[in-house]
């Protein structure tokens, strides 16, 4: 099993999966904020995307820009097979370590 993903990495990967074909940087940023239910800085999302891409967990492609972007290209992300595996491992690990645990109430 490869290194387990952190919560933020999982949120970014799941954001890409949820967005499907619309997963470009800005959309991933919004989706990650929605999933984590807090404000997320652009730097943390792009740093994570960069790291996930370097690890082969996501791949990206460039697409044409729009006038509001000053014509700058968009980078669309896709979760690679290795990324799906990593998500699955993280999910299994969580399920395993929580199995049979009942948190005490009224603490």
């Amino acid at each position: 099993m490869a290194d387990l993903l952190g919560t933020f990495e999982q949120a970014v990967l799941l954001a890409i999966l949820r967005l499907d074909a619309d997963a470009y940087g800005r959309a991933v940023l919004h989706q990650a904020q929605e999933l984590l239910q807090r404000n997320v800085s652009a730097g943390s999302v792009y740093t994570t995307l960069d790291r996930l891409e370097a690890r082969g967990l996501v791949s990206s492609r460039l697409a044409e820009g729009t006038p509001v972007r000053g014509g700058r290209a968009r980078r669309y992300y896709t979760v690679a097979g290795k990324g799906i595996e990593a998500l699955s491992d993280a999910h299994s690990a969580l399920t395993t370590i929580w199995a049979g645990v009942q948190l005490p109430t009224g603490v």
Binding site: R26, L29, T66, V68, R69, G70, R74, R75
Partner: peptide
């Protein structure tokens, strides 16, 4: 260089 154009574009859009 890898992310310059796309990140600046994303943030301008946002």
């Amino acid at each position: 260089a890898h992310e310059r154009e796309t990140v600046v574009g994303d943030l301008r859009e946002e």
